[in-house]
Amino acid sequence: MTEPILKVEDIHVYYGSIHAVKGISFEVNEGEIVTLIGANGAGKSTTLNTISCLLHPSTGSVSLLGKPLAKTPPHKVVERGLAQVPEGRRIFLQMTVQENLEMGAYTQTARGASGVAQDLERVYDFFPRLGERRRQVAGTLSGGEQQMLAMGRALMSRPKLLMLDEPSMGLAPILVEQIFEIIADLHKKGSTILLVEQNAQMALSIASRGYVLETGKIVTTGTGEELLASPAIKKAYLGGD
């Protein structure tokens, strides 16, 4: 069996005295889209930020390609092959589209200017809208374009694992669909993705596997179809009866 890209083992995370994540374990294998779904406050973003080393688990471990990530400073995590598209996009609004993408390639010094230029073209091929607007200041982009930019920026670091935190948040329904098509497309082109979403229906429809979080614990797991079909899930998250 090959090594999973990401292995999370029994992590517990506290915010002061609040026990936000209570023993979560899961893994992401190469070529998968794995989704963590759950309501607000279930611990999804906390889990993601722990993987990115922005938070530290009190017990448990996170390893990337078999090597533990513990004590890695957050800015070194990117070099190890993790890219996070944060909740709310967090693009640099006063910088141009191209500068935002260049920031994504900040750790790619070994690839040199020509390597980064190639990656830029790849992102522009994938997101033609960004290519058209490359000299524009990012603050002038629409919400959907900003989400594309946030994803493109993360891809510039050539991640082994792309983590998306609520990519559908704050977008119009038609854009949500478009963003999920993009995610499915990225997956088809070989990206391994960890997707955190409140929009369970959309997330499960493109996911290889899913984990359902409730108040800091994983309560159910299964393939995307299994979870979509499960009556309990339907009732709790999909608004079905």
Binding site: P74, P86, Q94, M103, Y106, T107
Partner: peptide, 15 residues
């Protein structure tokens, strides 16, 4: 410039 706009996001870029 990236840090002055958003330090958290800059950190996620590996800065």
């Amino acid at each position: 410039r990236a840090c002055s706009e958003d330090k958290g996001a800059a950190q996620l870029m590996g800065i």
